[in-house]
């Protein structure tokens, strides 16, 4: 078939017309896997907020609200959760913009910067969440100690020896808060730590390429 032979001839002639890709560009393509890690960070943060929102919707029944009212916490908890949602929405936006940025960049330098940014965002996010959990627990237990008659009974039992009672009650509160926060911290370490480690590895390799 003449046409095909003609095409073959033309095909070979066109060998040199392509814009050649440099070694550096190839390296940077190989390490684009950072973008998939950052994408996962974004996805997991969204899943996480869905999970926590779902959980709070499921658990916020009448008993919960009555308890909050009893402890004089209803208003402050409402304000706190509105602030919380605002802050978390902001973080999700940050995760998303990091992901977009990492996808759009071609230069290794820019890639490195975006990786550092993503890492920083994750750290801030985890710190914020832990602080928020600790703060909510402190508020809750503090109000409970003040307004819950059962706790007051326990404290009264110690009578003159009240400092011992306070020590026991607040000591146990402190332990509960500590354990709870550590559990959540471990949970974050497990999910985000894994992703951050891979991101770090990628970062180090990229740094070496940027000769």
């Amino acid at each position: 078939m003449d046409e095909l032979e003609l095409l073959k001839k033309d095909w070979k002639k066109n060998d040199m017309q392509f814009k050649q890709v440099s070694e550096k560009e190839i390296y940077s393509m190989l390490h684009k896997s950072s973008s998939s890690i950052v994408k996962w960070i974004f996805i997991i943060s969204v899943l996480e907020i869905v999970f926590w929102t779902g959980l709070s919707v499921l658990t916020s029944n009448d008993t919960y609200w009555k308890m909050l009212e009893k402890y004089h916490l209803k208003t402050i908890m409402q304000i706190l959760s509105i602030i919380n949602f605002g802050v978390i929405a902001y973080f999700i936006y940050r995760f998303y913009s990091n992901y977009k940025k990492i996808n759009a960049t071609d230069s290794i330098n820019q890639l490195l910067k975006t990786i550092i940014n993503s890492r920083k965002t994750v750290k801030q996010y985890v710190t914020y969440n832990l602080a928020m959990i600790a703060l909510s627990l402190i508020l809750f237990f503090g109000s409970q100690a003040m307004y819950e008659p059962k706790i007051q009974d326990i404290l009264n039992k110690f009578g003159t020896n009240s400092s011992k009672g306070y020590l026991i009650v607040f000591g146990s509160y402190f332990l509960i808060i500590l354990v709870f926060t550590i559990i959540i911290w471990l949970f974050y370490k497990l999910i985000y730590g894994l992703l951050l480690r891979r991101l770090n590895k990628n970062y180090k390799e990229l740094q070496k390429i940027d000769f």
Binding site: W11, D15, F18, Q20, V21, S22, E23, I26, Y27, L30, E205, K208, I209
Partner: peptide, 23 residues
């Protein structure tokens, strides 16, 4: 670390990149 296999891969791909361009 830039591994040996990575280096040889990048070199070979660079040399043969026209195949990929043509695809």
């Amino acid at each position: 670390m830039k591994s040996e296999s990575e280096e040889s891969f990048v070199k070979q791909l660079k040399a043969n990149q026209n195949i990929v361009h043509k695809i």
